[in-house]
């Protein structure tokens, strides 16, 4: 894969710039040079990306089957597992789904907000400890999390004694834990992007009498929408797939998230239910896909190209 990437890389850059205007009727050769080969890459990569997941999908249609059937994909075609998924009182899938959307949604909004605030400060203001602070943010996240579970349990059980509503077995508590990771890599990603927005824009706004808050909320945030969307998506995926901390914090089944709940279907060594698990995973992927579909226009909408002038 690596070699293929390197061979293709030069072409990747040759084309977008070589051809300036596309004619309505392009000869095939030209079509291929401009966009055709991109479709080839797209198709090849789609197979690479999606193929292993066909096994998951196939398993979800084969109740009682195993995950990796010996290469007989789609030998069965039954939606029973999907029906069963919603009919297990001890494993309330629908509730998990809702919780995941809620927790993932709030955490990612919070992460974007906190991260953007910090990135703005780092990018636009000069203060003592700025560089060290930036570096520390990144370093903190590099600590091996072997004991995180024990520490977070202690912390939340301490919080529970003061505020039961935001301690153990509370979704707010879990969201707060996730927000603890809001600064970090995300801040960096935004910081880098903020830096590409010329500070002349701020200056102009300042001269026009806008305060810092106004500049930030109404001007800068719009300009950096692509990266906000990326960070939002990354943190949504991150929180929805996280299950180590979630399984410690959330105790009642109907408060748990998809990642925690789904794992229960297969954690029992001798009574794994791959089919229902696969069905659950397929459905769980839908919110992520939908969110990406929705955010894509912000990510690649070219907002910056139009307004940074």
């Amino acid at each position: 894969m690596t070699t293929a990437t390197q061979q293709h890389n030069p072409d990747a850059v040759i084309d977008p710039d070589a051809a300036v205007v596309g004619h309505p009727k392009r000869p095939f050769k030209r079509y291929f040079r401009e966009t055709g080969w991109r479709h080839l890459v797209g198709i090849a990569m789609s197979i690479f990306a999606a193929f292993p997941l066909l096994y998951v999908f196939s398993a979800s249609l084969n109740p009682g089957g195993t995950l990796v059937t010996a290469n007989s994909l789609f030998s069965n075609f039954s939606f029973q597992s999907y029906v069963d998924l919603f009919n297990r009182p001890q494993q309330p899938y629908a509730a998990w789904f809702g919780n995941t959307l809620l927790i993932g949604g709030i955490s990612s909004l919070g992460t974007v907000f906190l991260g953007a605030l910090a990135a703005y400060a780092f990018s636009r203001m000069r203060f003592i400890g700025r560089r060290v602070g930036l570096l520390t943010l990144l370093l903190v996240q590099m600590f091996p999390q072997l004991l995180a579970v024990v520490a977070i349990f202690l912390l939340l059980s301490g919080i529970s004694e003061i505020f039961p509503a935001i301690g153990l077995n509370s979704q707010i508590g879990l969201i707060m834990v996730y927000l603890g990771g809001a600064l970090g890599v995300n801040t960096y990603l935004m910081y880098g992007f903020f830096n590409t927005v010329p500070s002349s824009i701020d200056e102009a706004a300042k001269i026009d009498g806008a305060g810092h808050a106004r500049i930030f909320f109404t001007i800068i945030l719009r300009l950096v929408a692509p990266i906000l969307a990326v960070v939002g998506l990354l943190s949504f995926v991150g929180t929805t797939s996280e299950f180590v901390i979630a399984s410690i914090v959330l105790i009642d089944p109907d408060k748990q998230t998809l990642a925690v709940g789904l794992y229960q279907f297969v954690s029992q060594e001798f009574s794994r239910n791959w089919s229902i698990f696969a069905a659950g995973a397929v459905l769980a992927a839908i919110p992520v896909m939908t969110l990406f579909l929705f955010l894509q226009k912000y990510i690649v909408g070219g907002l910056t190209a139009g307004s940074v002038k």
């Binding site: 001890q90 410690i248 105790i251 009642d252 089944p253 794992y263 229960q264 954690s267 029992q268 060594e269």
Partner: peptide, 11 residues
């Protein structure tokens, strides 16, 4: 309280 069987021991 519903827990994952594998987690019960360590927790």
């Amino acid at each position: 309280v519903q827990k994952e069987f594998g987690d019960i021991r360590d927790q």
